[in-house]
Design a protein around this nucleic acid. Structure first.
Lengths: 225, 225
DNA sequence: CCAAAAGTGTTTTCCCTACACCCATGT
DNA sequence: ACATGGGTGTAGGGAAAACACTTTTGG
């Protein structure tokens, strides 16, 4: 691997990844944010991210940043590159190109603490986040758009839930992501007709009639692109 | 813009763009390819592309590569980033990250000649291309997938045609991209009901009954994402 | 008048939407 | 018993798919 072969006009740039990691918390769609501990934008909220190490694949870098910056204890159920932000002046430190990734974490991944060079980490409202550093609001916007698209195509909603879940819980995931109410009967008809869900035992919630528990069928995978 | 602020573990990588530029030719979907004049992969076919210059935006680099490597005389009607290929060993020269772009050129953009460091350029079959250099077959596959998706959403098909066109021509664009036949009556019903097309004069083809010419309505734009 | 391509309608099916009441449990 | 949330069915509208013949031109 000799960089001497690179032509002289080749721009050497900083290569970074940023991760918009989503999870459900308190019936709401949340995104994982870190409070920056360094300049620029010290003390501002930002998406977890950082520079790709030499010899490290892009998705590996995304996973590493998730782990070291935020100490989430669960593995992402979905990780996908969705856009590359390369505007010349997007970062005051120089030409830094960021390959943005979308991650989905299951419910239960709510305990986070800051790690690395951050002051802290928290799951905050995805639809109404605080002011974000750099162009991270634009990244988050696009991540939300992609997440909404994926929801219809793939059965990405299941990745937000534990192995067994109720239909009202699943509907809650859809409503949180799409940011609107859905009709209960039409929703059940639609997801059950896909044949990707299997009933199991039963369960009681705090109040009201207990809900049937479901489990994802053996097939039913998340397609590509 | 001082790169001295970059932390030491920041990977400096080569930043490149590659362009999958599509156009219709002889009733077939073609992709613009260049024959490489330099190592590695000399004399192999490849997507036009190259390194981003300092201070140059990604889409500017994509346009420049199109122009200098292939001497196409027409402007792209659509240009969109669709995926970033950053695998560690995708290029023997070192860590080179390529932001792949999808371009659409109108019919008539068929005269191309090699430029820059290439031996030549040609519009070749998009669905059955020759062996390609690097990971360019993977890039092309993904570009085709994205193009097919975009076709349904946006009215991207119009970008393949001159200002005035016939409905059979438009149907030919759809069929070439989707790689399957469509029903004539259902097709006409669908596109005319969108209200994005306006009739104008008439026209004779070589043989058979002349077809009505259409023009795109004033509104009807290509949406984002 | 013949070849060649353009143009035209109807029927059926499927999916999405709207909509209101009963059921099972905990307190 | 009652409060709370879970569960169920049907009817109407609109989009998509299947399907064959007539029309207009050039040669």
């Amino acid at each position: 691997m000799s960089d001497l072969l690179l032509p002289p006009q080749a721009t050497q740039v900083g290569l970074a990844v940023d991760v918009a990691a989503f999870a459900m918390h308190a019936g709401e769609l949340r995104v994982l944010l870190v409070q920056r501990g360094e300049l620029p934008h010290a003390r501002d909220w930002a998406l977890p991210g950082g520079f790709v190490h030499p010899g490290e694949e892009l998705h590996e870098a995304a996973l590493r940043e998730l782990r070291t910056e935020t100490t989430v204890e669960l593995e992402p159920r979905h990780l996908e590159q969705f856009f590359t932000f390369g505007e010349v002046n997007r970062d005051p430190r120089g030409r830094i190109v960021s390959v943005a990734h979308l991650a989905v974490l299951p419910a239960g991944a709510v305990e986070v603490s800051g790690g690395g060079h951050t002051l802290g980490a928290a799951w905050l409202s995805a639809h109404d986040p605080p002011r974000l550093a750099f162009d991270h609001q634009a990244i988050l916007d696009r991540a939300l758009g992609r997440l909404q698209l994926r929801l219809e195509y793939a059965n990405l909603a299941l990745e937000f839930l534990p192995d067994t879940f109720t239909l009202p819980e699943l509907q809650g995931v859809f409503e949180a992501i799409l940011n609107r109410k859905l009709d209960k009967r039409n929703f059940r008809k639609r997801v059950l007709s896909q044949g990707a869900l299997l009933p199991s035992g039963e369960r009681r919630s705090g109040v009201g009639r207990p809900a049937q528990l479901y489990r994802r069928a053996k097939n039913a995978r998340t397609p590509a692109l």
